[in-house]
Simulated assay, not measured.
Amino acid sequence: MSQDPSGGLAAELSSLRTFKGRVDELLRNLGDSEAAPERVADVRLTGAHLGTGFNAAHALYGAYNDVHQQLESLAKLLADQIELLGQAVHGSGTAYADTDDDQRARMWEIQNGIKQQYDPGRDPYAAHSASDGKGGL
């Protein structure tokens, strides 16, 4: 970013296009990988895979299921955040008011979903953020 004569920041369009290209590539790679939210959700063990009739297998399956659900959420949040970043970069070349209503609605949908998943109890910076007056998400 460079400063324009009026004191505001002027975005370098070529840099933004390069960055958007990288974000688009990340989205393609994520969608094609085993970390894609749909693929993470599709691969799941059943309790019978770990054995039946003893408490350790039941406990192990419970732990596995909890971790798997968290991985599903993480994969979806990551994909959503990359999508949101891509849309933000795309929108930075134009005024927010010129952003398509559907894109704007999708950006808010992602933002609200991220807020719903946020747990300040798991955030090592939450206490610091609250005390500095800036708050969390």
Rank of each mutant, 00 (worst) to 15 (best):
Q111F: 01
D123T: 09
I114F: 03
N112K: 02
A75W: 00
S92K: 11
G91C: 09
I82V: 07
A79D: 07
Q69L: 10
D101V: 09
G53R: 03
A57W: 07
D102F: 15
N65C: 09
A59G: 13
N55R: 09
Q87Y: 01
Q111G: 12
L85S: 10
H90G: 02
V67I: 14
A105D: 09
R122E: 11
T52G: 11
F54Q: 06
A79H: 06
A63M: 14
L71H: 10
L77Y: 03
G93T: 05
N55G: 07
T99W: 05
M107R: 15
Q111L: 15
A63T: 13
N65L: 11
A59V: 14
D100Q: 11
A126P: 01
L77E: 14
I110R: 15
N55M: 12
E83C: 00
S73Y: 06
A75T: 00
R104K: 11
Q111D: 08
H68S: 08
D66E: 12
I110N: 05
A56F: 15
Y96W: 06
T99K: 07
D101R: 14
Q87E: 01
R104D: 13
Q117V: 05
F54N: 14
W108I: 07
Q69V: 09
T99I: 11
N112C: 06
L74P: 02
R106F: 05
A59P: 12
D119P: 12
Y96I: 10
I114P: 00
A105E: 05
Y125M: 04
Q117Y: 12
A126Y: 02
Y118W: 11
L71S: 10
A56V: 09
G86E: 00
G86M: 01
A127M: 11
E83W: 00
Q116F: 04
D98E: 12
Y125D: 06
N55P: 02
D100W: 03
A105S: 15
E72Y: 03
T52F: 12
A63E: 12
M107A: 13
A126R: 10
R106G: 02
Y118H: 11
A79S: 08
G121T: 11
H68K: 10
A75F: 00
I114M: 11
T52S: 09
L71C: 13
V67W: 02
S131V: 05
H68Q: 14
T99H: 11
S73F: 10
Y125N: 03
A63L: 04
Y118V: 04
P120K: 12
A56H: 08
L77V: 02
S73G: 12
R104S: 01
T52H: 12
I82P: 00
I110M: 05
A97E: 14
H68G: 04
N112T: 03
Q81R: 04
A130N: 14
K115P: 03
